[in-house]
Amino acid sequence: MEEKVKEIIQQYSGDKSYLVPILQDVQREFNYLPKDVLCAVSAHLSVPISRVYEVVTFYKAFSLKPKGRYQLSLCMGTACHVRGAELIARNMEDILGIKEGDTTADLEFSYETVGCLGACALGPVLVVNGEYHGHMNIAKSTKILKKLGKKGATDDEQD
């Protein structure tokens, strides 16, 4: 762990003004930002841990909790919202058994809702690990979750 952090910081020649890109790389490596990793970053960059914590909690892109293997983002922007994103959101929470912003206990799925993804013509939009799925509906979202291996997702609305 320590070695990996050192290596990443080395890529930025230890410059503390690159704190955000360093944290991004660290998060990519560890899937989230564990406390001891942040302490290591703080020590190697000689930036106080209170300052690192400030940055990590400020940006939503950083997570202090482990993220799931599949990261699902459901767009709740205006266009998606009027086309029924709310119903899909309820379906997602029912099937995954978690609230928006949480991760399933088996670390398979992280689910969050987002403001607007800028793909309003495709709305409602569901993003799975960076892959956009447009014109989403309840049946389609159930199918996607089933395909990703979510047990208990029964797509009874066969199409």
Binding site: P48, I49, S50, R51, V52, Y53, E54, T57, F58
Partner: peptide
């Protein structure tokens, strides 16, 4: 010593020690 800092932002923003 920089023992405290702000955390989060918007309505949740507050002053606290790390973690």
């Amino acid at each position: 010593v920089s023992a405290i800092g702000f955390s989060y932002r918007g309505p949740e923003k507050n002053v606290c020690t790390p973690f």
